[in-house]
């Protein structure tokens, strides 16, 4: 029982991060039909940026804030310089562009930062909290709590503000959005900026647990993509459920079977979903669009 709880806690923690990355995929996909494989690199910019700014003497909150802003700037530039000029290109071409952007970001990160693994101190100490025979790190509570706050904030933004509704409207029907006077270019930029912020916040929260490096984004992008696919691409709740499912599968797979294939779980999940429910658990966009 204690082991089960332990695995559950660690699965929920990574699952929360995957869910955030998947949410970033979802937001951009909905607004622009683009599957942004640079999504994981926002996580890296958040983590690495905070590490290096903190090392330069800034307080942790200030360092994190600036790193998140940097990720937002990267997201806006990605939209402005790579996606916007390729408007109307095929989905596959757009995916190629985001993969290229991801490689570029990693290259820049190698130069600006370095090639070492880095960590951050846990926000509120690292004494494990005992819970039902298992233990949980305070930082895990930060990750899960932070993810919940972000989900709620995003939900309120999309459902309760006119600008949020404009994002949903642009996702639903771009022509009609233009005809009611929505500047869809601004909405797309907003989607990239918010996705980048979500990714970077996830990176700041999780770095004390998982470490970070210039190329950590690839793994997060793959896991987040898998989560979004499992949930149903384009479906926000699906992204959250998919992320947590993959986190749990990884944790239990590693705990009860073997940790050798931990990173393979996400691929297995994608394959199973493509095979048995091609539109994902929550029925998002069809795979043909991918």
């Amino acid at each position: 029982m204690a082991e089960f709880l332990q695995l559950l806690f660690s699965g929920l923690t990574v699952g929360a991060v995957y869910a955030l990355v998947a949410l970033g995929f979802t937001l951009i996909y909905n607004a622009s039909d683009v599957i942004n494989f640079a999504q994981g690199d926002f996580v890296m910019i958040g983590g690495m940026g905070t590490v290096f700014l903190a090392a330069a003497g800034l307080s942790l909150p200030l360092a994190a804030f600036i790193a998140i802003l940097a990720a937002v700037a990267a997201g806006l530039l990605l939209h402005r310089l790579a996606i916007e000029p390729a408007r109307g290109a095929s989905p596959v071409a757009l995916i190629m562009i985001t993969i290229g952007a991801s490689i570029f970001i990693k290259g820049v990160a190698q130069i600006v930062f370095d090639k070492q693994f880095h960590s951050l101190p846990a926000f509120t100490g690292s004494d494990p909290i005992a819970l039902g025979g298992a233990t949980i790190l305070p930082q895990s509570l930060w990750v899960v709590g932070g993810a919940i706050v972000l989900f709620i904030a995003l939900y309120l933004f999309l459902e309760r503000t006119l600008l949020g509704k404009a994002v949903l409207a642009t996702a639903a029907n771009r022509l009609a959005a233009r005809l009611v006077g929505i500047n869809v270019k601004v909405i797309l930029a907003l989607a990239f900026g918010v996705s980048a912020a979500i990714g970077a916040i996830a990176g700041v929260l999780v770095t004390p647990i998982t470490l970070t490096r210039y190329d950590i984004g690839t793994l997060f992008a793959l896991k987040g993509f898998a989560a979004a696919m499992v949930g149903g691409m384009g479906h926000p709740l699906g992204a959250v459920v998919g992320g947590i499912l993959i986190g749990l599968m990884e944790a239990f797979g590693a705990g009860y079977i073997s940790s050798t294939y931990k990173d393979g779980v996400a691929f297995l999940a994608i394959l199973l979903v493509l095979f048995f429910m091609p539109r994902g658990l929550f029925g998002g966009g069809s795979v043909e669009r991918v």
Binding site: K165, A172, N173, A177
Partner: peptide
């Protein structure tokens, strides 16, 4: 129309 959005949201938009 904005299919997934409510009738009133369509009007507000």
């Amino acid at each position: 129309v904005f299919g997934p959005l409510s009738v009133e949201d369509n009007l507000r938009l």
